[in-house]
Nucleic acid binder design. Structure first.
Length: 348
DNA sequence: CCGATTTGACCTTG
DNA sequence: CAAGGTCAAATCGG
């Protein structure tokens, strides 16, 4: 743990140094060094990760980093805050709920969803749901692998099943539609859309919708250890962190964006997509929307709780995977544009 | 054989 | 009616 701390601290110092000395030093050189340091921290944390999620090392490291200095906190803010909401694709919902009816037939599973989304639904209900859906959606920009198969979508730790692809008007690249692989078995409603950014084919715009519920089922492949009911569970439980099989993961997964955000309550989210870290902190720490679709962490009301339970591996993860919506150079450094934003629509 | 992907058709919404 | 989103049959691949 000491080594991890040292590595992380070193990384933070390097990042600080980079920001201070921008222009005096080769940026790429500095970035590589920072990446190396954090990579080592991550690798070590992966090796050392305690079996009991939520307790032990992760929180220690985090609290330690947070207590280092303001710059360290800034880095943490920058890196952590985005993922502490609810719908991160990287971290499944975490509330203690009874297992989902796994035994049910696929159709039964679907019925749950159909109840609201079936084509026969009344328009008012549908629009209601639609409004809520819009709130449960956020997009991130993720750097595409710079080598290998560039068509591969970014790996965010979950397993997705592609169910459609569509050419979008005005876009040079088609949009791919994915849903959670466990949609049927565990009634997991999580979906995402992946589309290359027009002006930069090396960047994916990923839109996430709904939360993963496949981690909540006791029988789910990813059923995490229940810790306190409001603690984070690590994504590695399920399909997360599967061994790379396409050549983009091992060294490339860090390019992936793992942002965790919490939808704001009705009207709570600002129309400003470029929230500063501390703003995000406030917003995301606000009581979760009483969304019936999922509400895992209405209990995880405070960032502190989430922070405390976050394993260090996630931290390293986020360090590479996410940025923030601030103008920080970290974004540039890690080549991960994090325009994490809520799709908001004006109240109709 | 089973699960994932592809792809054209269909549905919903504005 | 156009565009976005989803379905589902056909196909692919392990």
């Amino acid at each position: 743990m000491t080594i991890i701390r040292r590595l992380i601290q070193h990384g933070i110092e390097l990042a600080k140094d980079l920001e201070v000395n921008l222009g005096n030093r080769s940026i790429s050189q500095a970035c590589e060094e920072i990446i190396r340091v954090f990579s080592r921290a991550r690798e070590r944390s992966l090796l050392q990760r305690p079996p009991a999620a939520g307790s032990g090392g992760g929180s220690n490291v985090q609290s330690w980093v947070m207590s280092t200095d303001t710059a360290g906190q800034a880095v943490l803010d920058l890196l952590f805050l985005p993922r502490v909401g609810e719908q991160t694709p990287a971290v499944g919902p975490r509330r203690s709920t009874p297992p989902l009816p796994v035994g049910g037939s696929p159709s039964a599973v679907r019925d749950v969803d159909v109840s609201e989304s079936s084509r026969g639904l009344s328009s008012s209900l549908q629009s209601q749901r639609r409004r809520r859906e819009e709130k449960e959606r956020f997009t991130v920009n993720v750097a595409a692998p710079q080598m290998g198969n560039l068509d591969l979508p970014p790996d965010d730790g979950y397993t997705w099943r592609k169910y459609g692809q569509k050419d979008i008007l005005g876009s040079s690249f088609p949009r791919a539609y994915y849903r959670c692989t466990h949609q049927r078995l565990y009634d997991c409603p999580a979906k995402k859309q992946v589309q290359r950014v027009d002006d930069n084919p090396y960047i994916f715009k990923v839109t996430y919708r709904y939360r993963h519920t496949c981690h909540m089922s006791a029988t789910a492949p990813s059923a995490p250890p229940a810790v306190g009911g409001a603690l984070l569970q690590h994504q590695s439980t399920t399909t997360a962190r599967q061994p790379p099989h396409d050549g983009r993961s091992s060294g490339g997964s860090w390019l992936t964006m793992n942002i965790k955000t919490r939808p704001s309550p009705e009207g709570g989210s600002t129309s400003n997509n470029t929230m500063l870290p501390h703003q995000m902190h406030r917003d995301y720490a606000a009581p979760a929307a009483s969304s019936d679709a999922a509400g895992p962490s209405t209990t995880a009301g405070t960032m502190d709780v989430d922070f405390g339970g976050q394993p260090v591996v996630d931290m390293a993860d986020v360090m590479f995977n996410s940025g923030s919506s601030s103008e920080h150079s970290i974004d540039f450094i890690f080549h991960t544009i994090h325009t994490s934003k809520y799709e908001q629509r004006e109240n109709n």
